[in-house]
Amino acid sequence: MGVAADSQFHVLAVDDSLIDRKLIERLLKISSFQVTTVDSGSKALEFLGWRHDEDGERKHSSNQTSVEVNLVITDYCMPGMTGYDLLKKMKECSYLKNIPVVIMSSENVQSRITRCLEEGAEEFFLKPVRLTDVNKLKPHMIMMMKNKNHFQENQEHDFKVEQSDSDLIRLPTEEQSLQQHNSNNNNNKRKSMDDGLPLDRARPRYNGALTVLSN
């Protein structure tokens, strides 16, 4: 278990500006990510296999999508669907809500930043995006994978418990499962997950309980 240091994460980058797509693509590739770029929010949703339907979630064609996306990084200001609209659509969809979303914007507007973070964006980068910003992406992808693996493990575990004693079913809290994971995976050469995460965010702090393998 755990994420191998050489596993290639796939990032979907969304920007209507060709210059900025070139730039973010290069930044992500130089950081060893696999990159797909699209020029609009609707193309991003299409790529993610999202379908507009009364019964949207069931129609989600996740099985048809061969590529897994580990993170979406999107410009805020785009004609038609904004980055915020894209974020909202993804968070409303049960198949996409666990994919971390990062918003980029050239405008430093506090209300905009707050709105995006409240809607579930992991980070808000001021443009032009730099390598130091891109370095903050990996922890979010590793966290998503760990949560996903734990969810699957817990499901299997709970299934067994259910068979023996249904009264005892209890999902471990996120923190418990993270600690559990940490104890399974001891490695001194790891870097604290806390590095680079904004301090003003109302989110659980893991203080080294969750760690990542450095390159």
Binding site: S17, I19, D20, L23, C77, S106, K127, P128
Partner: peptide
């Protein structure tokens, strides 16, 4: 204007 502002700041 914001488009030009954006691309000029992306290029420095």
């Amino acid at each position: 204007v914001p488009q030009l502002k954006g691309s000029s700041s992306s290029i420095g």
